[in-house]
């Protein structure tokens, strides 16, 4: 259905498969971005693929928790810095 090796897949759709991450990462030149976005606007299949990849990246970003270092780790860091001469005011 979305195999870029399939000769029946239109070139613009192949371009989406090849460069969707460049598009989502904001790494495309402005002109190419406009062309890419214009294709997504009227190709439902490609836009679904774009959403699929966007959701993957969103899921990865959720791993960016606000978990902090345990107090024991902070204590160790400050103790070792103190041994090295660290003495903030």
């Amino acid at each position: 259905m979305f195999d870029a090796h399939d000769e029946g897949v239109p070139p613009d759709c192949v371009n989406v498969v090849l460069h969707v991450w460049d598009y989502l990462d904001g790494r495309m030149p402005p002109e190419a971005t406009l062309v890419f976005a214009a294709h997504l606007a009227h190709c439902g299949r490609c836009d679904r693929y774009r959403r699929f990849q966007q959701r993957f990246l969103d899921a990865l970003s959720l791993l960016r928790t606000r978990r902090g270092a345990p107090w024991s780790v902070k204590g160790r860091v400050l103790a070792s810095l103190s041994d090295a001469g660290y003495a903030p005011r």
């Binding site: 791993l63 928790t65 978990r67 902090g68 270092a69 345990p70 024991s72 780790v73 902070k74 160790r76 860091v77 070792s80 810095l81 090295a84």
Partner: peptide, 28 residues
Amino acid sequence: WIDDVYRFALSLTRDEADADDVVQDTFL
């Protein structure tokens, strides 16, 4: 940045004890 470095170290090491050592060594 201790918290951020700890989180990064934990992502790399996938082990809390190893992450503790990496964080301490990093700041030193």
